[in-house]
Design a binder for these strands. Structure first.
Lengths: 234, 234
DNA sequence: AATTAAAACGAACGCTCGTTCGTTATTGAC
DNA sequence: GTCAATAACGAACGAGCGTTCGTTTTAATT
């Protein structure tokens, strides 16, 4: 059960996926390149960084829909016209953030899952990957979680599909564990809902965990303990 | 552990606290009486019902800040002027909902807790009460959870205080259980965070639970099982 | 039927929003 | 140093916002 400690920790995760500060912004720019009017990459990435960070800050304060582009202009020190060269429209600004997350998710933990491993290993891997990536991109995931209401139907659907996908993934692993006899019988739906909610809590209530000085490794240990106690046969 | 089943179920809860449809709206009117310009109680209650329900519906669709009072006017069939006789202002409309929840909470489960009972009993009572009341007032709690950003500082503080209160309550019960030796040693902070998040999930993701035909009694049983497995000495 | 108080109405007001676009400043190649 | 190309600028626009208030309708009392 604890075979992953030290062997698959946060530091190793960060060094094995493209999630350094530079790489993240580079990836964000690449994903949205064709929508952005500014052509010089170095300039564009720097300004996007400023804009997105300011968006997160203001959205935390008053919510995305109450954040005006004049607020954003003031916070970034850019003019209204400049902003529009980067974001296209207010709606597109929100959509760009939302589209980025599944992209990074695939990049970082999409292909790592292996059905030949034991259900416990698969489950732990999924949980760890989830916590690690949301730890690296906490403001992004927090924004996406809080500001789902303002999206076009198509992007809203994309968000729903992604959530469903991860729930099915969880459900399958639990089912496999039951079949192999390593997990006791349980309500697969309720169990995956619980795991999802524990994973979400890490980035939704991040401030509280920071205040209590809980780091992501001990949070993972806690989840694994709770799920283990509940699922594993004794 | 299962002594409460049948003896303290949802039906009994509903009949022992003032939470019938009529009583809820009556209580809401009483709490905000002095802010409302319309004097005839029967008329006021009926219109408030219409307004609040429409607010919940529109907020679910596009979020409170994107809901205009013209939307609300159309949805309720009332004129702008009439609306203002009931809500005072858009901000006050949101605040009235937020203020109502701790009020109902106190009314329904505030005084039922008894420190002489066993920690297990106290914990189960708290969990059951929480699920039951959020089951009865699901749209209210959902609205309050999603739309915290638009509040005045004072009401935001009130919301924070209330959350802190319930976390301390949980922490104390767990601590008492540890001292009495009925709970194993655990991280009290992480444990209460988990319980809170399980409780919140019931009204935040209500649609998903409805789709899978999970009722509140079986959800409570699930929580008690998970927490029991984790906390109770074997 | 007349009177009066309460409730509902909705056009109008001032303001702020997202967005545009003609102009100015900056950059880099020659 | 010149000159295109690129980026930044910010005043202006129309739409829609929350809110108000003079008027009309409704309801209750006499």
């Amino acid at each position: 059960m604890n075979q992953w400690q030290g062997e698959n920790n946060f530091a190793i995760f960060k060094s094995s996926v493209p999630i350094s500060n530079q790489q993240v912004w580079q990836a964000f720019y690449q994903l949205h390149k064709e929508k952005i009017q500014v052509q010089k990459e170095k300039v564009a990435i720097e300004k996007l960084k400023t804009i997105i960070k300011a968006t997160f800050k203001l959205s935390n304060q008053k919510g995305f829909s109450l954040m005006s582009l004049r607020d954003l202009s003031q916070e970034t020190g850019m003019s209204m016209g400049s902003l529009y060269a980067y974001i296209g429209s207010k709606t597109q600004l929100a959509e760009m953030v939302h589209q980025f997350l599944p992209h990074m998710f695939d990049l970082c933990i999409g292909e790592q899952l292996d059905h030949k491993e034991s259900p416990q290993q698969q489950l732990n891997k999924l949980i760890r990957g989830h916590i690690f990536i949301t730890e690296c991109l906490q403001p992004w995931f927090f924004f996406a979680f809080m500001e789902t209401k303002h999206l076009s139907r198509s992007i809203k659907q994309l968000a729903k599909d992604n959530e469903a996908k991860s729930e099915i993934l969880l459900g399958n692993i639990i089912e496999q564990g039951e079949k192999e006899g390593v997990f006791s019988q349980s309500d697969k739906f309720l169990t995956s809902m619980m795991i999802k909610s524990l994973l979400q809590n890490w980035y939704v209530k991040r401030n509280k965990y920071k205040q209590s000085k809980t780091d992501c490794e001990s949070y993972i240990r806690f989840i694994e303990q709770v799920i283990g106690n509940y699922l594993e046969k004794s």
